[in-house]
């Protein structure tokens, strides 16, 4: 069999004439079938999702968390910088003055009375994290958000705030 490059042809649509083996199709088909059957016996690479999970890097941008400081106080001071930074307008904050009896749970007099993130609007860009002057909001590797209604995907403050030993600290 001549080398492919040295073969000549009069066919304007081809660079070279096909050899008999090529024109029979069958050898090429057998070759292809050999490739597919070799894959048939390989172990599937599927990750069986609910049972097995793919590796998620620690810096993955998923569900948000509102951190507490080392004394268990909310770091968030309700400054609304994250709300301002949010390109998707997902964050809604109402700030207010801390009542005296709960002063030990906050770092300053100002705090977020409500803090809501609409997870359907959030694009997980991490801008809130960057904007936060108190290092209060962080994105975590959690990514399983599925719910059966839109209302359930508006996360409120008590869902977002970090818990210490179970119950939420500021709960009256």
């Amino acid at each position: 069999m001549a080398d492919k490059q040295t073969r000549v042809t009069n066919d304007p649509f081809r660079k070279y004439d096909l050899t008999l083996a090529e024109r029979l199709y069958l050898p090429a088909i057998m070759k292809g079938m050999a490739v597919t059957i070799s894959y048939f016996f390989k172990k599937p690479i599927t990750i069986q999702y609910p049972e097995e999970k793919a590796y998620v890097p620690h810096r993955w941008r998923g569900r948000h968390v509102l951190k507490r400081d080392e004394f268990g106080r909310e770091r968030c001071v309700g400054c609304q910088m994250c709300e301002l930074a949010c390109p998707a307008d997902a964050i809604t904050i109402q700030a207010g003055e801390v009542p005296p009896e709960r002063r030990h749970l906050h770092t300053t007099e100002r705090y977020a009375v409500t803090y809501e993130i609409d997870m359907l609007r959030c694009i997980f860009c991490g801008m809130c994290e960057e904007a936060c002057p108190e290092a209060a909001i962080f994105l975590t590797p959690f990514y399983e958000f599925a719910e059966d209604s839109r209302e359930k995907l508006i996360y409120t403050k008590d869902m977002l705030t970090e818990r210490i030993g179970g119950p939420i600290l500021y709960k009256d």
Partner: peptide
């Protein structure tokens, strides 16, 4: 099943 395994799926 065959289709899956040929494509390395289940």
């Amino acid at each position: 099943i065959v289709a899956g395994h040929i494509q390395m799926r289940y």
